[in-house]
Write a protein that binds this DNA or RNA. Structure first.
Lengths: 349, 349
DNA sequence: GTGAAAGCGCTAACAA
DNA sequence: TTGTTAGCGCTTTCAC
């Protein structure tokens, strides 16, 4: 395929009448090589167009400087931003990235993990699929001590690290905010409760109701796949309820926005008849009318921290075994939920 | 790092009392090996937990089954979708992906290409940065006959393949549509004219004006970085113009949506006072009020075709040297531009 | 149809 | 401070 033979350390060594190992060492900035020699070797190497052969090197060193990433979907704002963060950190540390998508399917996730394992990644960054029911597919990695870090959608697994936000608190705050705005019959539109993000937000919702002496009603909980369509369906369901709910806390912005659009289409006024709170602070939340109250979610930071943690784990398997890092979230109050001007410290930007 | 020694073909060979070369051949389904032997070898190999070592194999075979991707940004709907398409095809063909972002900067693009080259990717998929002024940084690849395929933001370069849509025609249609809606003073909000996507859309705009005997006015052309902020700024600029323009064709949805939001904030009615057409058909275009007329862009297909073309080029460097593949786009007419009910064959969905 | 043997290019233990 | 040497695990030519 490639036309001409590659320049190797042997060629460089021969040109300088020294040994290949000296060249190898010089090129890695080994401390025991004289500065002058290094300089000379570097000069000649680059002049000859030398390029390190990673495969020979990997073969010897038994690692690949490659990190695998398994995410549910690439084309969501959150994920794309998180991956941008991951990429920044890994690139900066000389690691390549192999990214694969589970398409929200447990089955496909199993195959992604196995493929990545077979590519001998040095570590794995994972956000779980919607319906992943157990973690057995990660065992092959643990058996070989390949570190795994989970982010956002996480689960307990051999004491692996997790990077998350406090979804319980966020759900609690979102629901409390609705209650403060006068809502008493609040729907929760959530996702698969297998996933921490959804179960915790739901738990926060329930706790907020309890703390405000509002009775929990299972009929007001709608568990869906959190798509736009799910938002539309839920809106229609809500419109048939009597008496009609006066608030809705949705576990992502996509479906929250879809409910708003659907409500408005039916002539229901937001937030006066129904107040809506979403989750994620996607760009779309600032475009929908009325602007969506939502929880801001540090996607980029989550990605960066997950990558940094994984790399330090790879470099030093004894490194601090923090089990969970929790990042800060913020409830951003906008017009979809704000019924009256309150003395609210949070901005409506 | 990894705890236990790996199982190699030697171990498998020993267990079966045959030679390593036979094992190697059997595992690759070499035709000259007896079926029975193959079956036996496969069974024992998988039983022993054998895993092919890609690095040893790459080292011998001189290719890596890895494809590099250089894109301006990951976190746009278009790019994320295109990459999803790329990933699907490459994974299906046994190729890994190394994805890197130029952050819209020529300088960073140069470094991405060089890094990927040093990782010995078998081929490269590229969408150019905003301000890339020449293609010299790709020369290292051409010198070694490493194939490169450009998609979306492309440029002529050693007869490389390009996967695009007909941006000229799309720009022409978008502008013609505005004219049909009665617009006579139409602003064009475009991006860096170094990039085909922007220069072609602009060319389409001019041609549509010419064909409808509307004089071209340079003052109505605004060249920006196409961000949301650029949309806001442009809206403000337009509001100061006298007489005020009555239409705007924007080369992406992000800035188109921002102008709409800004116009509405100022009480300007859309589409009656100003009609707006965007580009890309991002999800946000269906959320903004009024819904944005835009050009639908087959992101996923572009990614898939780019990947497939690259792979066929890698596998067979003599393969058909199509220089450009043009995919179909569609103008989607929605309320941001539709002033009167016309007998329009295009749907408003 | 199968085996022997020579590397691919690099690194690291050991020697000097 | 530098050199020698023995592989890492796989593929492939040549021989039988």
């Amino acid at each position: 395929m490639k036309s001409s033979r590659e320049v190797t350390i042997y060629d460089v060594a021969k040109a300088l009448n020294i040994s290949p190992s000296t060249v190898s060492r010089a090129l890695k900035d080994h401390p025991q090589i004289k500065k002058e020699t290094k300089k000379k070797i570097r000069a000649v190497a680059s002049e000859m167009g030398y390029q390190r052969n990673k495969f020979a090197s990997n073969l010897r060193q038994k690692h690949t400087y490659t990190i695998g990433v398994v995410v549910p979907k690439l084309n969501s704002f959150f994920m794309a931003t998180a991956i941008a963060g991951i990429e920044k950190i890994t690139a900066h540390n000389g690691y390549g990235l192999i990214i694969s998508q589970s398409q929200e399917s447990w089955r496909k996730e199993i195959s992604c993990v196995s493929t990545l394992f077979n590519s001998r990644v040095d570590g794995l960054l994972v956000s779980l699929a919607f319906d992943t029911k157990n973690m057995n597919h990660f065992d092959i990695l643990f058996k070989k001590d390949i570190p795994v870090v989970f982010f956002d959608r996480v689960a307990d697994c051999h004491g692996c690290m997790s990077i998350v936000i406090d979804n319980f608190k966020a759900g609690y705050e979102a629901t409390t905010h609705l209650i403060e705005q006068g809502c008493r019959k609040i729907v929760h539109l959530g996702g698969n409760l297998l996933r921490n993000v959804y179960s915790e937000r739901f738990r926060g919702y329930k706790q907020a109701l309890a703390d405000n002496k509002i009775e929990f009603d299972q009929d007001l909980v709608v568990i869906t796949d959190m798509s736009g369509q799910a938002g539309i369906d839920t809106a229609q369901k809500i419109m048939k309820m009597k008496p009609r709910p006066d608030g809705i806390f949705t576990a992502n912005d996509t479906s929250a926005v879809a409910t708003i659009v659907e409500f408005e289409k039916a002539g229901i006024s937001i937030p006066d008849e129904i107040a809506v709170v979403g989750f994620n602070n996607e760009p779309i939340s600032q475009v929908v009318k009325p602007n969506l109250t939502t929880v801001d979610y540090p996607a980029r930071d989550i990605g960066e921290i997950a990558a940094a943690s994984l790399i330090s784990k790879i470099k030093d398997s004894e490194s601090a075994n923090l089990s969970t890092i929790v990042l800060k979230h913020t409830l951003i109050v906008r017009n979809s939920s704000q019924r009256a001007k309150l003395n609210n410290s949070k901005s409506a930007r």
